[in-house]
Simulated scan of single mutants.
Amino acid sequence: MNDGGNEQLDSIELELRAGEILGVSGLQGSGRTELLEALFGTQPFTRGAVRLSGQSVSIGTARQGVRHGLALVTEDRKGTGLALSQSISDNALLAVRAVFPSRTALVKTEIPSILESLEIISRGLDQEVRALSGGNQQKVVLAKWLAISPRIVLLDEPTRGIDVGAKVAVYRLVRSLARRGVGIIFVSSELPEVLGLADRILVMADGRIAGELPPGSSEEEVLSMATGTEAQVVTER
């Protein structure tokens, strides 16, 4: 992404390598969620250039984002990630049916193994998603996106409201996808998560990327960059 912007974001310069876990941190309202939505196409960039594998692409809708191999796990899994009254199996096929309907029959045969790999606890694939725990609901959301074999996975607060065991499963999945060459952008309000998972960390403030930090950075360094404290200290001197 070069010089990307819209009503919420400005001057976004971002590069994601295959197999990289890019963490995004910042205070609430800094533009973290808006960045993922712009990349995915739900609130698209209105200026700037997006390139995938060296080729310029236009991502103006979520459907275009999916067609280009992007997946977005939103922070509101019940409101935007799932059809709660539908079965686990139907939820896992939502993205495929919506964007790649011709693949549905083939992918349907793969769903049981995808769900098994995520260790979802349920009475069966026909169980309504509303009856699952929060952690298992989140795993169904992840299964929905794994079914499209994404090139890039955008994760917005993926461990919010789930138990420790489900969190560990999410971490394992993120690392497994990265090992397979999938690019990951991971947004979390939990700094230990970002610091523990990310290969690089982007810090956002006021709809811009305030800076970048390497792995091994401290929580204090992230907060300092997010609040502009470091810049203020330098100015005062």
Rank of each mutant, 00 (worst) to 15 (best):
N6G: 10
S224E: 15
G60A: 08
G161E: 07
L16G: 03
G124A: 10
Q232S: 11
D10V: 01
R63Q: 11
A18I: 00
T104N: 08
K108H: 12
I148H: 01
R47Q: 15
L154N: 03
G161M: 06
E34A: 14
L154R: 02
V234S: 07
L195A: 08
V182K: 03
A98M: 07
A131E: 14
R130L: 08
V57Q: 04
I184M: 08
L125N: 07
L223A: 09
V194D: 11
T104L: 14
A205P: 01
L177R: 01
E15I: 02
I12Y: 10
E230M: 13
D3I: 01
K167I: 06
I162C: 07
S189Y: 10
T61G: 04
R175W: 01
L93W: 12
R51H: 10
L202A: 14
A98P: 05
V24D: 06
A83R: 05
S217C: 15
D76L: 02
A95S: 15
G134R: 10
G4F: 07
V234W: 11
L106Y: 08
S30V: 04
G31S: 09
V174H: 02
G165M: 06
L70M: 13
R17F: 10
L223M: 15
G69T: 07
G181H: 09
K108Q: 15
L39S: 03
G165S: 05
E37F: 00
Q127N: 01
G124V: 09
G5Q: 03
E219M: 14
P112R: 11
L202N: 08
T229P: 00
A210G: 09
V57S: 03
V96Q: 12
L191D: 05
P192K: 07
R51S: 12
